[in-house]
Amino acid sequence: MHLSPHLHALEAESIHILREVAAGFEKPVMLYSIGKDSSTMLHLARKAFYPAAIPFPLMHVDTTWKFREMILFRERMAKEHKLNLIVYTNPAGHEDNVTPFTYGSARYTDIMKTEALRQALDKYGFDAAIGGARRDEEKSRAKERIFSVRASGHRWNARNQRAELWRLYNTRLGLGETMRVFPLSNWTELDVWEYILAESIPIVPLYFTKERPVIRRSGAWIMIDNPEKMVYEPGESLELRRIRFRTLGCWPLSGAIESEAESVADIVAEIRGARYSERQGRLIDSDQAGSMEKKKQAGYF
């Protein structure tokens, strides 16, 4: 399908960035979170190195609380595209039974995502990690460079970022430093969906509306992906709703929206008329003021 000029420009920029990562680092990795942004990145990486295979592994930091359909999709993609896929779970968090129900969402995210990611990067000795974050997602992300240096301990120093000019990315690292790279920085949610539509990129079916079992919690629809693990609060009752997800994460923390979108074209139409930003469904960002920036300083992606 025809790509509009701006999607064409965004695609070329992302491909350029991915190749610079492959050429500029000794051991890069692409973080794969199974969502639409990761699906887009995977597609771009396949294009960037075509006809050769993607020259770096993909890594999924698995909290063990992802939707089952996400894991099925991950395995399908790994098989279809012969991906070198690493799955990592924080063993300490797992042994201590850190769940979204036993800990607050902030603490849970810190242990099972932030800490897990740090452990995984250290374990494999990756010097660059490619992530799917976009500048339109959140205000501190709007300020971050495409090639973003992390000091030892994976800390982000927002006030001392490298100048980033032209298409000329500085891939050099100082002692103990690693790099985070965001090839989708300049994309918006709508760009991603229009691109998925134009390029027929496969995505997890949870993005499409279906009648699903949900409860109402903190003003959001929470889908019961695994009834055996669900911990209900007083007054919560199960109901069936036609819902879909704008972002995917851990099922107890991902708010669904009521929607009639059954295809990517429907989703594009829906996003064009959307009245709420994408992250409002995520329960983790609104924990505290400037919460994303604080998470990033601590090493969250």
């Binding site: 500048r135 339109d136 205000k139 709007a142 300020k143 927002a158 006030r159 970022q161 920085s185 300049n186 918006t188 760009d191």
Partner: peptide
């Protein structure tokens, strides 16, 4: 404003 913010 300290750093460049990108907005689409």
């Amino acid at each position: 404003t300290i750093d460049v913010a990108y907005r689409s």
